[in-house]
Structure formats: C-alpha cells, structure tokens
Amino acid sequence: MKVSKLTIKELKEKIEKKDQVSEELIVKLEADSRTGVHKIAQKLRRKEERKKEAKQKFKEMSQYEKKLHQQNYRLIAGIDEAGRGPLAGPVVAAAVILPTDKFILGLDDSKKLNEKKREELFDIIYNQAIDIGVGVVDNQRIDEINILNATYEAMKKAIKDLETNPDYLLIDAEELSDVNIPQQGITRGDSKSISIAAASIIAKVTRDRKLVEYDKEYPHYNFASNKGYGTAEHITALREQGPSPIHRHSFKVVKKST
C-alpha cells in the first residue's frame, strides 16, 4: 500500500477491509507526515497491542487444559453456572468442550465482560466449540433443595445435555459427587481456564436472555435490566407488588410489605 499516495479517507477505507494489519504498514503510517495518518497508526498500534495481550492471556488460561492434554485427556469440559445470587429466575449451568486448535480471543470470566462482548463471544463459542450442554433449574426447585444443591443439579444436567462424553471436567470452585468422570474444582476457575470461562459466558448469556423474556410477563420488576438481582429498584417493586411466580421464596427478602 502506497500510503503517501492515498488520502486519509482512502487509507481508512482500505484498512477497514483488512482482516489483519502488518507491522510494516503501521511503520509506514507512522512515518507519514500527516497528523491524521499518525492517529490511524496509533489506533492500529493499540489494537495490535490489545490483540497481543489477548493472545498471551489465552495462552495463560490454557495451562490447565494443556497439562491435561499431556496426560492424554482430549475432551475436557469446562463447567460454570450463573444465577446463584439473584432473588428471581433459575440457576443456569453450562458445560463447554473447546477444540485444541482454535484461539478464542477475549475469553474471560463473564462478570468481567460487558454485555456486548459476552454476546459476541457467545456466538463464537457456539460456532467453534466441540460441544455445549446447558442445565437449568427453576426457582421452585431452588426453594425445594436450596441454591447450592440446585447449582450442583444444574451442572449435572449440563453434563448430561452434552452429546459428546467428556473425559475430564474442570469446574469453577466445585466438585460434583455421583459423577463418574475425573474432575478438578478450580477456585476462580472462570478467570484461570479457557474452558470454564467459555462455560461462564454461555451460562450467563443464556440466563440473561431468559430474564429478558420474563420481563415481558412480569414488567413490574424490570428483570430485563436487573436480571433478577436485588437492586434497590427490584426490592422496592417486591415490597409494593409482592413476589412474582419466578421469585425464590427461600430468599427471605422476597416478600411483600404489609
């Protein structure tokens, strides 16, 4: 690309069409005398640095999977849940088996990502994963067996929902009884393992979408915004309206003021 022969607008248009920008091109842009071209170069440089950081983070978060691959485990399912803390809605767990030959840049604990990034990664994970299983346990079951046991039940459902039998499980902060698959619980695993991070994103987005749908049925509580969590607005609505059919009665705050 002959940088000096192109206008700033033309440069932007050509660069936008490129999937990758070479170091050589960035250097050429940096050497141009125009301020506008320098700004393009700076933006590209920052973008490349972020991509490099993301690749390094992905590498660091692949260490558990890498060690297991060296032990001849091939189908490693990461497992995580979303929805332990909310006052309403289900707890949702996901099990994700990722391929060994793909980079999914940006994978991280779903709580560290904004909604737009989670949605973007959700689609990428579904397109690239070997298999994905989802388990959902509703609020009535949560009230029956408590949230911890409901979380375990959702995780086991997610494993059963897989079409591919995993040969190892990496689980965020938990270990599952009555599951005859080798496993390891990892504290804060959603920020340490790519498989668990992927599961955290699938679980979070799946649950959030359910709460957006519930918002249409029960508009008083603003579930589309709070996703069932105990925001001040949500608690005020509870005191005024009482609980909806999807509220967890075992969570003591869920009651109507008299």
Rank of each mutant, 00 (worst) to 15 (best):
G189Y: 01
G189H: 02
G189V: 00
G189W: 01
S191G: 11
K192W: 07
K192N: 09
K192E: 11
S193A: 08
S193C: 11
S193E: 05
I194P: 07
S195T: 10
S195H: 07
I196F: 03
A199K: 00
A199M: 01
S200P: 08
I201Y: 03
I201N: 01
I202E: 00
I202F: 00
K204N: 05
T206H: 10
T206S: 14
D208G: 08
R209I: 07
L211N: 07
L211Q: 10
V212N: 10
E213D: 14
E213P: 08
E213C: 11
Y214F: 15
Y214R: 11
Y214I: 13
D215L: 08
D215E: 09
K216C: 11
E217I: 14
E217N: 14
E217T: 13
E217P: 09
H220W: 08
H220G: 04
N222T: 12
N222M: 10
A224C: 10
A224P: 09
S225Q: 14
N226D: 05
Y229G: 08
Y229R: 06
G230Y: 01
G230E: 04
G230T: 06
A232R: 11
A232I: 12
A232C: 07
H234I: 07
I235E: 08
I235Y: 06
I235H: 06
T236L: 14
R239C: 12
R239E: 13
R239T: 12
E240P: 10
Q241P: 10
Q241F: 13
G242Q: 05
G242R: 04
G242A: 05
P243H: 03
S244K: 06
S244F: 03
I246L: 06
H247S: 02
H247E: 02
R248Y: 01
R248D: 02
F251S: 04
K252R: 12
V253M: 14
V253Y: 13
V254A: 04
V254T: 06
K256N: 05
S257G: 14
T258I: 15
T258R: 15
